[in-house]
């Protein structure tokens, strides 16, 4: 363990998910999901927060369930993984990068298989109104591998331990760090393939290879706030700068009124955003250091100080440590 500073910190998780404005009009459900462990956060480390965005396309007609299974499975798999890690940080990092993505995919696939066994695809679900009403629908949902597509979803996870923070992301959505000084950065590198409605997915062959993973050792100044969101929220802003401002604004709001007051407003903020913005389901989860309100707003050094700068003005990726 590094200098031990982190062991005294307490963290809390809050978050909400709202149905998209376009989903309300279409009568479709909220296909995002959010889940965290332990349920009463702040009690004990590690904390794990997971978000998922079910695709909602005609082919992924069970993606609401797929997203729920993804967050529940991921939170449990990551927490179990972290609880048994007694090796060095470098060994844990290697396992997190090389073994954990596969474990997350397998866990989700097993959960989907169990759901399918209990709720087989009905003839109505396999009929053209769901499966092939489009001229370029090429996937037949008749075998077990393709039936995963019906549950297709993204997955975003952040986990906080005493000595490091772990981030994993498959597909679109955003993860932000906010430093004690209010500087906003992205711990994970961009994935240029996530463009024009297309996303990597838990249902894709070889999905484990598409995970982006960041292992962030907390040796000096950890982030005060970590934000996870599905893409319906950032897509509601006119530009990337407007979304990044969410990070510093929320940290300021926590300092002004406390995390509970912020939590009471998240659902309303998301609802306003989807109505005036993307129309998509919108989910936001926060992992907040309990001392964030008291921290010096001008703390001098963060892991992000050495990070690169992406085209939208947010630093990305290089916050990950070599351990």
């Amino acid at each position: 363990m590094p200098d031990g500073q982190f062991t005294t910190r307490r963290w809390r998780i809050v978050g909400h998910s709202v149905r998209g404005a376009s989903h309300e009009r279409a009568g479709t459900p909220n296909q995002d999901a959010i889940h965290w462990l332990p349920a009463s956060s702040g009690d004990e480390l590690p904390l794990v927060l997971a978000l998922a965005d079910g695709h909602g396309s005609a082919k992924s007609f069970r993606s609401e369930t797929g997203a729920r299974l993804a967050v529940e499975t991921a939170a449990a798999v990551v927490r179990d993984f972290l609880k048994v890690q007694t090796e060095s940080l470098s060994a844990t990092k290697r396992m997190a990068e090389e073994w954990l993505p596969g474990a997350l995919v397998r866990g989700w696939q097993e959960a989907v298989a169990a759901h399918l066994a209990a709720h087989p695809l009905s003839p109505d679900e396999l009929d053209p109104p769901h499966a092939s009403r489009h001229a370029n629908a090429t996937v037949a949902l008749t075998d077990s591998s393709n039936s995963l597509v019906a549950y297709g979803t993204t997955l975003l996870v952040a986990a906080v331990t005493e000595s490091f923070i772990l981030y994993l992301q498959l597909g679109d959505g955003e993860i932000l760090n906010v430093s004690a000084g209010g500087e906003v950065s992205k711990p994970l590198p961009e994935d240029a393939r996530l463009f024009a409605n297309e996303t990597t997915s838990l249902c894709s062959p070889g999905a484990w290879r598409d995970f982006r993973v960041c292992f962030q050792v907390v040796s000096h100044a950890p982030p005060s706030l970590i934000l996870l969101s599905t893409d319906g929220y950032p897509n509601s802003f006119l530009n990337a700068t407007g979304f990044l401002k969410v990070g510093s604004d929320i940290l300021a709001a926590i300092r002004a009124g406390g995390l509970d007051a912020v939590n009471e407003n998240i659902a309303a903020w998301l609802t306003e955003s989807t109505r005036a913005g993307s129309g998509d389901d919108a989910t936001l989860g926060l992992i907040c250091a309990e001392d964030a309100p008291q921290r010096d707003a001008h703390a001098s050094h963060t892991n992000e100080d050495a990070a690169g700068q992406n085209r939208n003005g947010a630093k990305t990726g290089d916050a990950c440590d070599e351990a």
């Binding site: 909602g56 489009h134 679109d172 409605n197 997915s201 893409d231």
Partner: peptide, 25 residues
């Protein structure tokens, strides 16, 4: 209408046009 839907599609670089389902005529 299909193009204005925010529904995501799984990444499929091998199938042109897979990002927006085209309704049957």
């Amino acid at each position: 209408k299909s193009a204005s839907s925010p529904a995501s599609q799984t990444l499929d670089s091998a199938t042109p046009g897979a990002n927006v389902p085209i309704p049957v005529l």
